[in-house]
Nucleic acid binder design. Structure first.
Lengths: 224, 224
DNA sequence: TCAAAAGTGTTAAGTTTACACCCATGA
DNA sequence: TCATGGGTGTAAACTTAACACTTTTGA
């Protein structure tokens, strides 16, 4: 096997950009590191790829280690492979973003990792090239969200149109017109009224809606 | 350094999806492998990442090894890290696409690698997960091309509007209306007439145009 | 009774699409 | 002289954007 053994080997890591929707803002789950390297600084949740595990599986495992969540929507952002990106050793890292519903994660587990939520436009500086990873993840996530119905991963199964609108505004970074927005939703078959009413956000109460995956698969139509 | 040494190391490769525009079709530069593994089959051009080289640099080096070209537009497609993706050894590969002007490459070098051009919709089956790499590269390239003026990397510096239109048609996979297309070009400040006439494709001759990078940077406007 | 969020249509502006003929030239 | 690719404008359909008031109800 000299064809292979002539070539060097590298440490391979994964890092997770975990997005949630909190207080009408896209937020990020970060670690305040209580371990080396870069103890005391802020970073993404990461981990090393194992021998008998795909890189995608490593990302899923690392996400589960922090949040307790499985079956989460994740997309690869890309490989980060500059020579000096970690100071002590050469490590190539593959970044992934995840979209989670902030109501669902395991709070104890998150606290035990010294992790915390922060709005993306208030995020602290991160170690290594993690800032670049977050920037790229944001661009990629926004691009995907404008073409595919991935934003629903950030919401509970049932949501009001006000919440959906403020999510769109947070993703696209611009205010949207309420009437135009609701007109568009009304023409989107895969978003359907469930009948129930949410009274937690207003006195009057707001109709609850949900995303119907099957309708989306049939029509292929989604654009908000 | 036991923090690092406790973790496994992996062979890291890069693979290049090299796009060119030939006979009005998006084409791909492939290898007919005269070496193991998978000798006799078709594959992308690839190579292993070296110790003191970034992953991006490895991709550039591999592209240069095959084509002789430097300073080529490349984008990372992503990391491919399934456990069994190469049969004999675990190798994680990072794929990149490159856009080259097909008039420019070193023909001798390409022939010495047993490489050949093929239109994307006539490509043969490729080894390992290279088919998946090509599909993802195409999606990513098309997405980028619809937002940024990257298509000009596939053309000579000066080109006729007919060539540019047939390139757009090849990228978007649909026919375009000639008058609407030219109207749009006329409103795109970063595409400017050079004055010269190309007589190689028609008796009458066609005006030559070029992409002006500086105008694009000022206006930020590009949409074809 | 009033504050706070929910809900509801119309019109003007702009963009996109469809479409057919004349021009210049070399063979 | 004719075959080949180069070049040109208009009108209808559709999409997007702007805009303000009424409803419900808990505090």
């Amino acid at each position: 096997m000299s064809y292979y053994s002539a070539h060097p080997r590298f440490h391979l890591a994964v890092d997770c950009i975990i997005f949630g929707f909190r207080d009408d803002k896209i937020s990020l789950l970060l670690l305040k590191r209580d371990f080396e390297p870069a103890k005391g600084e802020c970073s993404l949740m990461g981990g090393f790829v194992r021998e008998n595990e795909s890189v995608d599986d490593a990302a899923r495992r690392v996400l589960t280690e922090l949040t307790g969540l499985t079956d989460i929507y994740m997309e690869q952002v890309g490989a980060f492979g500059k020579v000096g990106r970690e100071p002590d050793e050469r490590v190539v890292s593959v970044a992934y973003y995840a979209l989670i519903n902030i109501d669902d994660y395991d709070h104890e587990l998150v606290e035990s990792h010294n992790a915390f939520w922060v709005a993306i436009d208030e995020r602290p500086d991160l170690i290594f090239d993690h800032d670049e990873m977050v920037s790229k993840a944001l661009v990629k996530m926004r691009g995907m969200a404008s073409e595919y119905p991935i934003m629903f991963h950030l919401l509970p199964k049932e949501f009001t149109l006000s919440k959906l609108q403020s999510l769109c505004e947070a993703i696209y970074g611009m205010p949207l017109d309420k009437r135009n927005f609701r007109k568009q939703v009304a023409h989107t078959a895969c978003i359907e009224k469930v009948g129930a009413i949410d009274k937690s956000e207003s006195k009057r109460g707001a109709a609850l809606y949900r995303f119907n995956e099957n309708v989306f698969r049939k029509t292929g139509i989604f654009k908000l």
